[in-house]
């Protein structure tokens, strides 16, 4: 079976499971909204937050909600040991990784489709002024975050203390994603947007994605066999 077919089969399965319960989208979206709200209390003064604060709040909400979604998606695979069943299948294991990554990324993008307009609305942030660049930053940032997160969540699926360890492993390694996301978004949100800077950050995110997806594809097989 071809690599891409496996990816499609695994991703489709994850999305069907999610449409049955909507649990991951619902809980992570609500959690993201709560993050935005909690940080708003810290950043908003005289009824307004500056543009950099809106960018920071958006990316923190994405990161936190992403951790929640990752943990839940792999809890599902662990519940009936279906992760083992997939590893037993005669398919290249990196294809399973890409399939899970595609599923996680789709869920994350759905959550972001709700959170981004909300941040734009609540903070009068001009997130849609340069919509293409903004979408590029969100897509590239989420891909990098989900790529690292999927590998670690899969690795930790059989560990006892996975709930506490996942954020501890994920956050230091995805710091470049957060910096690039926040700074790139802030550059777009300034009164006169700094497009070259935003593009530079986008480039950095794309190269981060390339390097870390390649590394994860290499590391998935040796870390999944005990």
């Amino acid at each position: 079976m071809s690599f891409l077919r496996t990816v499609a089969v695994v991703m489709r399965k994850d999305l069907v499971v999610e449409t049955r319960s909507m649990e991951v989208v619902y809980t992570s979206a609500l959690f993201a909204v709560l993050c935005v709200l909690v940080f708003a209390f810290g950043f908003v003064q005289d009824g307004r937050a500056d543009s950099a604060a809106a960018a920071a709040i958006l990316w923190i909400a994405i990161a936190f909600a992403g951790t929640l979604a990752l943990a839940r998606v792999f809890d599902r695979e662990r519940q009936n040991e279906t992760l083992r069943a997939m590893l037993l299948a005669p398919v290249p294991r990196p294809a399973l990784y890409v399939g899970k990554l595609a599923g996680v990324l789709t869920l994350l993008l759905v959550v972001e489709a709700l959170v981004v307009p909300l941040v734009a609305l609540w903070f009068q942030a001009a997130l849609f002024r340069h919509a293409a660049l903004m979408a590029g930053l969100i897509l590239a940032g989420s891909t990098g975050y989900a790529a690292v997160g999927t590998l670690f969540a899969a690795m930790l699926a059989r560990s006892r203390s996975r709930a506490s360890l996942l954020p501890l492993l994920l956050y230091p390694i995805t710091i470049p994603v957060i910096i690039a996301g926040v700074r790139g978004t802030a550059a777009l949100l300034q009164p006169d947007a700094d497009l070259p800077v935003a593009r530079a950050w986008l480039m950095m995110l794309v190269s981060f994605d390339a390097v870390f997806i390649t590394l994860s594809l290499w590391l998935f097989e040796p870390t999944m066999t005990e």
Binding site: V17, R20, S21, N80, T82, R84, A85, L88, A89, P90
Partner: peptide, 20 residues
């Protein structure tokens, strides 16, 4: 990979997705 395709396992945890 081909060898894995010749093995069938019924685990204690059943390997089924309850939502499906």
């Amino acid at each position: 990979i081909a060898l894995r395709g010749r093995i069938g396992v019924l685990g204690h945890d059943l390997y089924l997705y309850p939502e499906l």
